[in-house]
Design a protein around this nucleic acid. Structure first.
Ligand SMILES: [Mn+2]
Ligand SMILES: [Mn+2]
Ligand SMILES: [Zn+2]
Ligand SMILES: [Zn+2]
Lengths: 146, 146
DNA sequence: GTGCTATTGAGAATCAATTACAATAATACC
DNA sequence: GGTATTATTGTAATTGATTCTCAATAGCAC
């Protein structure tokens, strides 16, 4: 079975909630789909600017929760004072390893965490909704520079 | 071998850096030691107020990085718009399971993560400095209320 | 097309956290 | 103890990310 495209997912989400399909929202989504890797609001806004779009930051801030809600995007927390985001639709769940020196971010998978979730659900009676694991360290280059 | 007390740890840290031992810093530390569980700056400030202390929020904001740096306290990220903290000296490392409904926080240990850190170090050449794992879900009570 | 109302951009507001500054006080040295 | 040095303090101002207000605009259902 073929996966729906992101734009389809979004349009169905919009229609289902009696929200409105606007060029601004679709421009923002389009841009997100073209970014590979992580991004933040400023970066997204600048990229849209550079393409001649007049979309305001306010609209970006208002659109992101919609994309998150329909499963296209997720928030990524690098604990650096503002939110980062990433396109997740069709991507495998993964965790982040970040270098405290240069900010490099590597992605890795940790299948044990599924088992952990199941265990926590049983142990504490929780219905688990998700998890985030971040690992910090120093990359090889930044270790030398120390 | 007996562990140094928190106040000893802090005084040695202060002395070693040519910083100054002040009543404000020691009041703040004292208060942190009396809190069990997680806290934020507002809560800490209010508790100090209630005991008649005149310590300003600015001083709390300035003291916390010191406590963190000397290993007495760590930042806890509940992704709710501001930092939380907890006393960690003499406590085992643990992760958090948080209820999205009522905000309850449970602590649990996950020994696998030590192995994961070792694996990541080998695989990517990183020197690992730490990790955080948060799990979100709905507690039994909040599941019913749904 | 008309009416309803969701959405927009601009700027104001919010709020945690940081900073500037002048007054104070902790340490080092005599 | 007294003095010089400078870290620390409280206050108030500032920053920066995010949210909100509001009047104008524009989707969408009929
Ligand atoms: Mn990622
Ligand atoms: Mn804890
Ligand atoms: Zn690095
Ligand atoms: Zn709950």
């Amino acid at each position: 079975m073929v996966m729906k495209s992101e734009i389809q997912v979004f349009r169905e989400y919009i229609r289902g909630r009696h929200l409105r399909r606007t060029p601004e929202r679709e421009q923002i989504l389009q841009e997100i789909l073209e970014i590979q890797g992580h991004f933040d609001v400023d970066e997204l806004h600048l990229r849209l600017r550079d393409k001649g779009s007049k979309v305001s930051k306010a609209s970006i801030y208002r659109a992101l929760p919609l994309f998150i809600d329909c499963g296209l995007v997720r928030e990524v927390d690098f604990s650096d004072g503002h939110w980062h985001y990433e396109h997740i639709y069709g991507h495998a769940h993964h965790c982040h390893l970040r270098c405290l020196g240069c900010g490099e971010v590597l992605e890795f998978q940790e299948p044990e965490l599924g088992r952990l979730e199941a265990h926590l659900a049983r142990e504490y009676g929780y219905r688990i909704k998700g998890h985030q694991l971040q690992v910090q360290g120093l990359c090889a280059t930044c270790q030398e520079a120390e």
